[in-house]
Simulated assay, not measured.
Amino acid sequence: MISDQIKHLALLLLVCFFSFFVHNDFIPADLMESRNLATAQEMVALENYLAPTMNGELRLEKPPLPTWIAACVNHIKPHSLSAQRYAAGVAATLMVVFLYLVVRQLSKNSTVSFVCALILATCYNVIMMGRTATWDIYCHSFMLGAIFFFH
């Protein structure tokens, strides 16, 4: 018999698939997305991976890790907005799984952790961050992962 935890994770992954990956190219690119991807494309074009730049000037407003992720995606599939958004969807899915694990560890109740993670996966702001290639979803996801591993 399949355990509740495996059922919960499978359902969460299904919800994440529909929330973050299906028709993720439907939303037009916004200004922040364009700036971030331009920074990653410039990083790849100039082969300068240490410090992100935009139009030749340092761009240190955002941490470089998401830029490096976008640059890796750009190496694999150049100039593909959908591929960049898939990477953000993976980060959003990781965030949902990390929340499930954190709440399960704190509450010792897999049903409570499932409900909390399901609420997170269906929140409008999380869905929008997971469907666009902005840097915020990476920071939120890695932060929740760090909380899980610190605990």
Rank of each mutant, 00 (worst) to 15 (best):
N48K: 12
F150L: 13
V97C: 04
I69M: 09
P52F: 08
A29I: 03
V44M: 05
P64M: 00
N125K: 15
H8D: 11
S82R: 13
L65E: 00
A87L: 06
F17C: 13
F148L: 15
S113N: 06
L120G: 03
P63Y: 04
S19E: 00
G145W: 15
N125R: 15
I137V: 05
A91G: 08
C16V: 04
F21K: 00
N74H: 02
C116G: 02
A92R: 09
L144K: 07
F26W: 11
L99M: 04
F21I: 09
I69D: 10
E42R: 07
M128W: 15
T111W: 09
I137M: 06
D4T: 14
A91L: 12
S3R: 12
M32D: 06
I69S: 10
F26I: 11
V90M: 04
V15R: 00
A70Y: 06
A121I: 03
V22I: 13
C72I: 12
D136I: 11
L46G: 03
A146V: 13
T93W: 12
T53N: 08
V103G: 04
C116I: 04
A29Q: 09
P64E: 00
L46N: 03
A91E: 05
A70G: 04
I127V: 12
F114S: 06
M54Y: 08
Y86Q: 06
F26N: 06
I69L: 09
V15D: 00
L81Q: 05
E42T: 01
F98T: 02
T93M: 11
S34Y: 10
A45L: 10
P52A: 08
V15W: 01
L50H: 05
L11E: 01
L65I: 00
I2D: 03
D30I: 11
T132N: 13
H23E: 13
P52M: 08
C16F: 14
I76R: 08
V96T: 07
V15E: 05
K108I: 14
A83W: 05
L31R: 04
M1G: 07
V90H: 01
L65T: 01
C123G: 15
G145C: 01
T67A: 07
S110F: 06
K108W: 02
V112P: 04
V115R: 05
L101K: 10
